[in-house]
Nucleic acid binder design. Structure first.
Length: 341
DNA sequence: AAGGACGCCAACCGCGGCGCA
DNA sequence: TTGCGCCGCGGTTGGCGTCCT
């Protein structure tokens, strides 16, 4: 309904703008304002469609446009806003004075999206990618840790710490796969269905799931799972929705070498914030819920945890468009899972 | 030095929303 | 209520510059 026919007209110039055209457009708008974009080209003496003129003005010629590289603060703001708004580029641009939606969109597509992928985050959900392949390094690390514990005589204290770290990592991984569902009253606008899909498991479902795992652990058929200490205290952990802020405490086993991705180096450029208990949104969100939104100043940059880094591998396929395993049974029965565990 | 691959970004395309008659 | 015209938005494309082999 109501499609503009302006660009279907033949004889109108397309493609890059010449300095002369720019000058005509700027002069006209400075003198008369843009008024009706449809009528503007004729009035300004331009052989362009109104759409083209509007785009040229809003994305390039407008006097208040800020050009040049995005600052770290702007980058952080884009990340935060995108985690809440999704691909609402105009809405994001409205919080970045002097930046156009087109510029932000391009910056996202060429830089930020790649960075998130390299760090093992899904650029749409801002969550660690949930596909099993992207988590393999982490699972392998856990296996290596077990090897270490089995074959080396360590001090009891160190052993206990490492075992706890392994438990925490596994529990957190479960949490990543089935993050808590956003509250029904949540008014957060998401630009992606992914967010809603991924939040399909509630805390209680995850808790029940772990209970069923606990009952399975004594079964000879799944003996490999017995490494997972699913005591009541550790189960309490996931029921409390382990936040991201716990991640930096985790240690990767000393014999584990993370994949040599560029993202590893870039990781420190980003900030990871606590998700809080039930936050349905990005790890790039602000730690304090009392922080006014949108932020005017980016928070201090902290180091991303090695745990988060190890979750993803830039070379592995993205989880974008995929779903977390819908049935845990399938996962547990998968021979690969047994091998890893 | 040449040319192929890759990245960046300005510009285009097409759809949906909104106002108005 | 319906249809039309316009605008704005998000996705995509294509050209240019740079890097790599």
């Amino acid at each position: 309904m109501g499609r503009s026919p302006c660009c279907d007209e033949t004889g109108l110039k397309k493609g890059p703008w010449t300095p002369e055209e720019d000058q005509k457009l700027v002069k006209y708008i400075q003198k008369h304002g843009h008024g009706s974009w449809r009528a503007l080209p004729k009035l300004a003496g331009l052989n362009r469609c109104g759409k083209s003129c509007r785009l040229r003005w809003t994305n390039y010629l407008r006097p208040d446009i800020k050009r040049g590289k995005f600052s770290e603060e702007e980058e952080q703001t884009i990340l935060n806003l995108h985690s809440v708004l999704g691909n609402k580029w105009s809405a994001i641009a409205s919080h970045l004075p002097g930046r156009t939606d087109n510029e932000i969109k391009n910056f996202w597509n060429t830089h930020l999206k790649k960075k998130l992928i390299q760090m093992g985050f899904d650029p749409m959900t801002h969550r660690p990618r949930t596909d099993i392949f992207s988590s393999l390094p982490n699972l392998i690390a856990l296996a290596n840790l077990k090897e270490l514990i089995d074959h080396h005589s360590l001090e009891e204290h160190a052993l206990r710490l490492q075992t706890e770290a392994a438990q925490m990592a596994k529990l957190q991984y479960l949490q990543y796969l089935f993050p808590p569902q956003p509250p029904a009253s949540s008014n957060i606008v998401t630009g992606s269905n992914q967010i809603n899909n991924i939040g399909a498991f509630s805390d209680m479902e995850a808790f029940n799931l772990l209970n069923s795992l606990a009952s399975l652990k004594d079964s000879p058929s799944v003996s490999s799972l017995s490494q997972l200490d699913l005591s009541a205290s550790s189960l309490q952990g996931i029921n409390d929705s382990i936040p991201f802020s716990r991640l930096p405490d985790l240690q990767i086993p000393c014999n584990y070498q993370p994949p040599p991705t560029k993202g590893m180096a870039q990781a420190s450029e980003f900030t990871v914030f606590s998700q809080g208990g039930n936050s349905p949104i990005s790890p790039f969100q602000f730690a304090s819920s009392s922080t006014p939104f949108p932020p005017s100043v980016a928070p201090p940059v902290t180091q991303i945890s090695s745990m988060v880094n190890s979750l993803g591998d830039a070379s592995s396929p993205s989880s974008y468009g995929e779903e977390a395993p819908s049935v845990w049974h399938d996962l547990l029965e998968d021979p690969m899972f047994h091998d890893i565990a």
